[in-house]
Design a protein around this nucleic acid. Structure first.
Lengths: 155, 155
DNA sequence: ACATAACCGGACCGTCGCAGTCCTGATTAG
DNA sequence: CTAATCAGGACTGCGACGGTCCGGTTATGT
């Protein structure tokens, strides 16, 4: 239950990887570093960029960079960037129609306190708290050693 | 975005309705009272019964009853009964294979603190806290008035 | 100026879980 | 025995999600 999308999980891995000390990292480079297909990583980075969690530099020698320190990124914000606004209900979006009839809809505002509680819980945990386990041992070894390998070797 | 299943929302409405003071209520009766199709209500009640939130009496003159007071039912338990164990990850089930390779899987134990926080948040809110808004005004009036609508019309 | 590398913003499709319904038993009151 | 009710499935249509790909834009470096 509360199925967190797999993309969101990747997002955490990607963000932690972005904290590896380098100034700028490319999408293919990150993909190689964390062992996730490049198109998927690209998609994650796009969402994160749209959510303001990373800043991007276009063009050759471009790449991504953390917009803030991991300590200042609550996990709730990552989820919001990937899966949309955090809300625990079936019809919470600000859709105009309001389930056709506001009075009839049994799903109304009731979950607000629950949502607030979850929001608070997710705001209290930062990515720094999840950092340690974020990059599995297998991928933690090739750090700054040679990370432009699998993409640089393609030319 | 943490989509809560619609069934879970119905579950809250049903549970609140079960608190209406009657000793025993049948599935069709509840359906008529809250304005939700009978088969759906039946499904919800089955799940709730399996989760130990309501007790059932089979046979003629049977029905459902709250297993505990609303104050003693945290919303997290309702969610767990309807949507399975509360866990915020893609692969958290106790599946044997563990994503094929435990070492490789980037999704491992990292979300535990987050899950714990959510679990705590959901345990702190009881159904009594959600009672007021649970049954919309429209359905709060016709208590036992004219509920022979959709259940009497079938067969 | 040109080629290259990288991001951007979509469209696209297969898969899977969910909502909702229905059917066939098992159980109990009258 | 009969009727009412719960129990536990099977089944189906739909929509969201994971994952991939493509054309376009921007910037670097020669």
């Amino acid at each position: 239950m509360l199925r967190l999308s797999k993309l969101t999980d990747y997002a955490v891995v990607v963000l932690v990887r972005l904290d590896a000390g380098l100034e700028l990292q490319t999408s293919p480079g990150i993909a190689a570093a964390i062992g996730v297909p490049e198109p998927t990583v690209a998609k994650v980075l796009k969402s994160l960029s749209a959510g303001g969690l990373v800043t991007s530099l276009r063009g050759a020698r471009g790449g991504y960079r953390l917009a803030r320190a991991l300590e200042d990124i609550p996990v709730g914000e990552v989820i919001a960037a990937m899966d949309g606004p955090i809300a625990l209900a079936a019809c919470v979006d600000g859709s105009a129609t309001e389930c056709e009839s506001l009075a009839l809809c049994p799903v109304r505002g009731r979950w607000d306190p629950v949502n607030d509680a979850i929001q608070r819980a997710l705001s209290a945990i930062s990515l720094a708290d999840m950092r340690e386990a974020a990059i599995p041992a297998v991928f933690r070894v090739p750090h700054t050693a040679e990370l432009g390998r699998s993409d640089a070797s393609r030319q």
